[in-house]
């Protein structure tokens, strides 16, 4: 079986700064992979390479065995890669339902009209916003905007879902809700890559994790053994955020 997502020697250089340095890993079908590392280690850049926000300088990225690196972001989205953003990005002039519909209308499934609206309703219920479908998202709280963003990403029925610190900035009770939501998605068989700083979430959710430091991949494997890897410990101890 081919992997859902394969990263092969991906590299991104900004002038002289190498943000992602020959990183290779695979994500299996239905797997939840944690992408972790200290601040500035290149995790978000890695996600940007996968979603096509940035083209890789070298290397290639495959989705279900088909090369997606080098394609523009919209083409990658249509192939079935959906994402959320580190700093939440909603469409402020639209209501929650229309926000979610945009994912269904233009993404992989390309629905229109009532079909798109139905999906949006189902997903809003799913993330717990069923009663706020017509609320302008600009008036929503941070967590609710994050929920809208997740529902929008799911509306395309993605083959791979990328979550960029989706749990960041939530208070403890919201965090519990968020973790169980991701867990549910994982159980349903969704393939997910999550960049995350919340270590508890990584421990309780992920099948495997990939650790990056200064643009390089320094460890990969099961969560508990990777986190006790001496090199990973060193990378984190050198960083205030650990």
């Amino acid at each position: 079986m081919t992997a859902a997502l394969s990263i092969r020697a991906a590299r991104k250089a900004f002038g002289g700064l190498v943000a992602v340095n020959d990183v290779s890993f695979e994500v299996k079908q239905g797997e939840l992979l944690g992408l972790i590392g200290p601040n500035g280690s290149g995790k978000t850049t890695m996600l940007n390479l996968i979603s096509g926000a940035l083209p890789p300088t070298a290397g290639e990225i495959l989705l279900d065995g088909k090369r997606i690196s080098g394609l523009p972001a919209h083409a990658i989205a249509r192939q079935g890669v959906s994402r959320t953003f580190q700093l939440v990005r909603v469409l402020p002039s639209l209501d929650a339902e229309e926000n979610v519909m945009s994912g269904a209308v233009f993404g992989r499934v390309r629905l229109w009209g009532e079909d798109a609206r139905r999906i949006a309703r189902v997903l809003l219920d799913r993330v717990g916003l069923g009663d706020r479908a017509h609320m302008p998202v600009a008036a929503m709280t941070y967590i609710d905007q994050k929920r809208v963003e997740l529902a929008r990403a799911l509306a395309a029925d993605p083959r791979v879902l990328l979550l960029d610190e989706w749990l960041a900035g939530l208070n403890p009770s919201e965090l519990q809700i968020g973790i169980s939501l991701i867990d549910e998605l994982h159980r349903e068989g969704r393939t997910i890559v999550m960049v995350e700083h919340v270590m508890d979430a990584i421990r309780s959710l992920c099948d495997r994790c990939v650790v990056m430091s200064s643009g390089r991949m320094i460890a990969e494997g099961g969560v508990s053994e990777t986190l006790s890897d001496p090199e990973v410990v060193r990378a984190y101890l050198g960083d205030d955020d650990a």
Partner: peptide, 14 residues
């Protein structure tokens, strides 16, 4: 409308 709101999001929804 989506582009007018946020062009980055527009690209990433396809």
């Amino acid at each position: 409308t989506v582009i007018g709101n946020d062009e980055t999001v527009a690209r990433h929804v396809g």
